[in-house]
Design a protein around this nucleic acid. Structure first.
Length: 491
RNA sequence: GGGUUGGUAGCUCAAUGGUAGAGCAGCGGCCUUUUAAGCCGUUGGUUCUCGGUUCGAGUCCGAGCCAGCCUACCA
């Protein structure tokens, strides 16, 4: 962007004038003795008084010019503090420097703490150091920045202008920190596995392709973490997890970003039920630590509460088939496949969602995904999922058509699936071969060889971190919990 | 990919087919305790791009670009 305009020219003129005054903004350096928020808090607590000298630093976000006095808002990562700059106190030359400041500049201020006549805790400036000059104007302070495209493409402006956006991302960071704390306290080992893979396995999704020059071959960006983490179970890391990016070459939407963050965790000698305890405990731990509550309220633009999610355990458990019968009729599973299809199309109005070539289980699953999942706002473990949907799980002992799996739905979205992991290499090979169909090159034989060396029985879980954040932070778009969501490149 | 809504000053937004505007920010002036400071004055535009219709287009038509929402693939 080589664009120039009057506002930029004026700022450059101010920079030139600073240079003439002997100030080299980008060469200056300052070491703050305290944060803006810290200075306010300590003064309020009586730990600092009117004799206390402090050095604060931050971005100038507002100023009120009173002629021979200026009030300047300075903001750092901790918060805001007001600076009082008076011509007589700091001297004529220094006051000329203050006059050259523009909103957005980074400055350091040395001075004494005091309270203004209006009762605001402030720093009475003795010295002002310009440490970075902003050559472009900031978004307007009052309106903020609302243009979504600018907010996503230039997220730094969004973070400067909208405190609640910054808060959301700080909380996202805290959520991930608490996930690590929770798992590490329970003896889980964090690992890193390849993002560039020969065969992209562990999920049914279209991968991105990339190329390695010196090896002379293509690689796929991973679509799941699963198969490598299971190799580690084989290798004797009994409790293992990874938090990392997955890449799927599919459409973008309110709920989908091409790269998204997954947590996968595996526990030897666990099963899908121990994973329920793990997930429920983890989410409640996060909510308590980060939000200090188990009641999550989602609000609309007007601040009205649109839904309330209660995370208080124990969470509801219900079988997939029971939910389907509730919605589609008690006799649903007694019908012939043709009758089921007809009921789905006619009575349940799923015309747009069921293709002619859909198999029978896909018809039932359309009922689940379209009519049931969106209604599961409160935490719900959906268990005994049809085996066709999950090729990597163990068959349920009391229902041979289902697998030992739960899908945890919260906020109308699937947040986490978990399995009793399939560790029978013969059965696993058959299932994967069947799933690969004609595309046998997609079969990860190396993984199957690993299983043949013996994998302990294990419970495994995958959690979509972005969606978890959406649910916990009350965001309706995945783009509002990802700092730099994928957009089409400009120009 | 399909449908739909939108793109105007740095920001937030106006403008029946008839001189492109306001608030904030900026710039100049006044002001030594302000809080979205105030008062006076004032600069600032490829109306997303390219074509078309018209005496005349920000506005109507066509194509394209970018984005939001819905939808599809999927988590």
């Amino acid at each position: 962007m080589e664009d120039t305009n009057q506002l930029i020219e004026q700022r450059k003129a101010n920079l030139a004038e600073l240079n003439e005054l002997g100030v080299q903004p980008f060469e200056n350096k300052i070491t703050p003795t305290i944060s803006c928020q810290g200075a306010c808090a300590k003064y309020e607590a009586g730990e600092l008084n009117d004799e206390s000298e402090v050095i604060i630093a931050g971005r100038m976000t507002a100023h009120r010019d009173m002629g021979k006095s200026q009030f300047i808002d300075v903001k750092d990562g901790s918060g805001r503090i007001q600076v009082f700059a008076n011509k007589k106190i700091i001297g004529d030359d220094a006051f000329k420097v203050v006059k050259c400041l523009d909103l957005g500049d980074f400055i350091g201020v040395k001075g004494l703490m005091f309270t203004t006549k209006m009762g605001e805790i402030s720093v009475k400036a003795q010295e002002v150091t310009v440490v970075s000059k902003a050559l472009r104007p900031m978004p307007a302070k009052w309106e903020g920045l609302s243009d979504t495209e600018t907010r996503y493409r230039q997220r730094y402006l969004d973070l400067i202008a909208n405190d609640e956006v910054k808060d959301t991302f700080l909380k996202r960071s805290a959520i991930i920190r608490e996930i690590r704390n929770f798992l590490q306290q329970r003896g889980f080992v964090e690992v890193e596995t390849p993002m560039m893979q020969n065969i992209p396995g562990g999920a049914a999704a279209t991968p991105f392709v990339t190329h390695h020059n010196s090896l002379g071959c293509d690689f796929y960006m991973r679509i799941a973490l699963e198969l490598y983490l299971k190799r580690l179970l084989v290798g004797g890391i009994d409790k293992v997890f990874e938090i990392g990016r997955n890449f799927r070459n599919e459409g973008l939407s309110r709920r989908h970003n091409p790269e998204f963050t997954m947590l996968e965790a595996y526990e030897a000698y666990g099963d899908y039920e121990s994973m329920m305890e793990l997930l429920q405990g983890m989410v409640c731990h996060i909510a308590n630590e980060v939000l200090d509550t188990l009641i999550i309220e989602h609000k609309n633009a007007d601040g009205e509460v649109t839904k309330t999610i209660d995370l208080t355990p124990p969470w509801r458990r219900v079988r997939y088939k029971d939910l389907v019968k509730e919605k589609a009729g008690d006799d649903w599973f007694d019908l012939s496949p043709d009758d089921r299809r007809e009921r789905a199309l006619e009575e349940l109005k799923l015309q747009g969602d069921i293709e002619a070539e859909c198999e029978d289980f896909e018809v039932t699953n359309a009922v689940f995904e379209k009519l049931i999942e969106p209604t599961l706002i409160q935490p719900t473990f959906v268990t005994h999922v049809p085996k066709e949907l999950v090729p990597l799980a163990k068959t349920a002992p009391d229902d041979s058509s289902a697998v030992e799996v739960f899908e945890c739905c919260i906020n109308g979205q699937e947040i986490a699936p978990a399995y009793s992991e399939q560790n029978n290499p013969v059965e696993q090979r058959e299932r994967l071969e069947h799933q690969a169909g004609e595309e046998q090159q997609k079969l990860d034989d190396d993984f199957l060889v690993a299983l043949e060396h013996g994998m302990p029985p294990a419970g495994g879980i995958g959690i979509g971190i972005d969606r978890l954040c959406m649910m916990l932070l009350g965001q309706e778009s995945i783009r509002d919990v990802i700092l730099f969501p994928q957009l089409r490149p400009k120009s």
